[in-house]
Amino acid sequence: MIIQRYVLQARKYLLANNNAIMSLLSSMVLVDIFIIPRMSDVRTYGILFLYAIDTWVIGRKSKTTFIGCLALLLLMYVLYLLTGTSEQTEKVAVWLFLLLLIGVVQIWNE
């Protein structure tokens, strides 16, 4: 009961600040891709965990995740044309894969 109440409260809060949270998470991903030079599992899975929790709590549809995939795909495409298979392109590809994985899990839950 207590957990359910907390989840409901968290859900309300997250729903109210959905855009801000999405912007924050997106910014973190972009910072990871463009600013921080090396790949860190703690960072990657940390951001991913936050997104997964947020998605679970507010019941976000898989379509949103796939739109995120679409954005990453376009980013990867541009980077591929400009820099080839650079570290940044690879980082985007890994993010795309991980987001796709979350999207698939979401689809099954739906």
Partner: peptide, 16 residues
């Protein structure tokens, strides 16, 4: 390369 596995590029760069 994860990116290449997503993009399936051609052997000719002109078609990139």
């Amino acid at each position: 390369k994860a990116s290449l596995n997503f993009l399936f590029p051609s052997t000719i760069s002109f078609f990139a």
